[in-house]
Simulated assay, not measured.
Amino acid sequence: MIRVVLVDDQELVRSGFAMILNAQPDIAVVGEAGDGTEAIAAVRALDPDVVLLDIRMPGLDGIEAAKAVCGETRTRAIMLTTFDQDDYVYDALYAGASGFLGKDVRRDDLVHAVRVVAAGEALLAPGITRRLISDIARHRPREGTTPSDRLSVLTERERETLRLLGRGLSNAEIAAAMVVSEHTVKTHVSNVLAKLGIRDRVQAVIAAYETRLIEPS
Rank of each mutant, 00 (worst) to 15 (best):
Lys67Asp: 00
Arg142Thr: 15
Ala66Lys: 05
Leu164Gly: 06
Ser170Phe: 03
Asp149Met: 12
Gly62Arg: 00
Arg56Gly: 08
Pro141Leu: 12
Glu72Lys: 02
Arg107Gly: 05
Ala119Ser: 15
Gly96Thr: 00
Ala172Pro: 05
Gly71Ala: 08
Asp87Ser: 13
Ile133Arg: 02
Arg140Lys: 13
Asp87Ala: 14
Ala175Arg: 13
Thr145Leu: 05
Met178Asn: 04
Ala119Arg: 11
Arg107Ala: 09
Leu169Gly: 08
Phe100Ala: 08
Arg131Ser: 15
Leu101Met: 15
Arg167Ile: 05
Ile78Glu: 01
Leu101Cys: 15
Thr161Ser: 15
Asp135Ala: 14
Leu124Phe: 11
Gly166Gln: 00
Ala66Gly: 02
Val69Ile: 15
Ala119Tyr: 05
Gly102Leu: 14
Ser152Glu: 14
Ala176Asn: 13
Ile78Lys: 00
Thr146Ser: 14
Ala177Pro: 04
Thr146Pro: 02
Asp61Arg: 09
Gly168Met: 10
Ala176Pro: 04
Asp109Ile: 07
Glu156Trp: 04
His188Leu: 11
Thr161Met: 15
Leu162Lys: 09
Val69Gln: 00
Thr73Lys: 02
Ile133Ser: 05
Thr129Phe: 10
Lys67Asn: 01
Tyr94Thr: 14
Phe100His: 08
Ala175Pro: 12
Gly71Trp: 03
Ile55Glu: 01
Asp91Asn: 14
Ile63His: 02
Thr155Leu: 11
Leu60Ala: 00
Asp109Ser: 12
Arg138Thr: 09
Ser170Tyr: 07
Ala65Asn: 04
Ala95Ser: 14
Leu154Ala: 10
Gly120Met: 09
Arg167Ala: 12
Ala119Thr: 05
Cys70Gly: 00
Ile63Ala: 02
Leu93His: 03
Ser148Pro: 00
Glu143Tyr: 12
Tyr94Ser: 10
Val180Lys: 11
Glu182Asn: 15
Glu182Tyr: 04
Val116Asn: 03
Arg130Trp: 06
Glu143Asp: 14
Ala68Val: 00
Tyr94Cys: 13
His183Thr: 11
Val114Gln: 09
Pro147Leu: 12
Arg159Ala: 11
Arg115Phe: 08
Leu110Lys: 10
Ala122Lys: 07
Leu132Asp: 05
Arg74Cys: 09
Tyr90Asp: 11
Ala119Glu: 12
Arg150Val: 14
Val189Ser: 06
Ser181Arg: 10
Ile174Trp: 07
Gly59Val: 08
Gly99Lys: 04
Ser190Tyr: 02
Tyr88Lys: 03
Ser170His: 05
Glu160Asp: 14
Arg107Val: 11
Leu60Gln: 09
Gly166Tyr: 06
Glu156Pro: 03
Glu64Met: 05
Ser98Gln: 12
Gly127Asp: 10
Ala177Tyr: 06
Val69Trp: 04
Leu154Gly: 09
Leu60Cys: 02
Phe83Met: 07
Phe100Ser: 09
Asp109Phe: 04
Leu164Asn: 11
Ser152Trp: 09
Lys67Thr: 01
Leu162Pro: 07
Arg76Ala: 07
Leu110His: 08
Thr161Phe: 06
Met79Tyr: 05
Asp109Asn: 10
Thr75Trp: 04
Ala77Gly: 03
Glu173Cys: 09
Ala137Gln: 10
Ala125Thr: 08
Glu160Pro: 02
Lys67Pro: 01
Thr81Asp: 02
Ala119Phe: 04
Arg56Thr: 14
Leu93Trp: 02
Gly168Gln: 09
Met79Ile: 13
Asp61Phe: 03
Leu169Val: 07
Ala125Met: 08
Thr146Trp: 09
Ala97Arg: 03
